[in-house]
Amino acid sequence: MGLKAIYKYGSPPNFYRFVTRLEPWCLYFGLLLILIGSAGGLFLAPKDYQMGDAFRIIYFHVPSAYLSMSAYAAMGFASIIGIVWRSNVAFSVAKSIAPFGALMTTIALLTGMLWGKPMWGTAWVWDARLTSEFILLLLYLGYITLHASIREQKKADRSASLVAILGIINLPIIHYSVVWWNTLHQASTISKLDSPSIVGEMLWPLLVMIIGYMFFFVAVICRASSAEVLKREKRSSWVKAI
């Protein structure tokens, strides 16, 4: 491992070959898990005694929220690798993660609102987790906009990566400051429904969904980043052979 492995898999042709071979497996496995999970969540899981059937939204809300955060972590990690080793492959991975992460954040917010409307009576409360999720969306949008508005490829990559890295450092601070602010403002409004204890029959579809989303995420990133790598390497000889 170490540097040798990075150079081996970091070279565009090797990366392209590896990723295109990996992609179908992840896609079909992910889709299968998502289908099983949604069937389990929508039809098999018993009704929650407190929230009725509305809790089934959780099976779609939690995976997207989970993925929106881990996608940001992955983006920051790829950015660090890109900055340190000047790796074009890492930059293209980071760039292709950003839109997917923003999409997942939006879905997490929307499904959260759809869950909140019947449960809390309003679609939006200034809850710590909702606010952090919204800030996360702003971070993604900042990355995407910055990348889009700098014309030079290399400069855009490195500038946007700096922003992503700064976001990684800042995300815990933002989250805890929002939590702290929130506990001082409105502690009791939602705490009753805040953490429903999920057990047994209700839990397994959720885990299956999360894993399924993860595999799907990997498949999408494989496809998008391979396209990005091809676009950047369009002048080299190995691309012409494809």
Partner: peptide, 8 residues
């Protein structure tokens, strides 16, 4: 857009 989340 970039500053707001960081300064929050």
């Amino acid at each position: 857009l970039i500053i707001t989340p960081i300064t929050l």
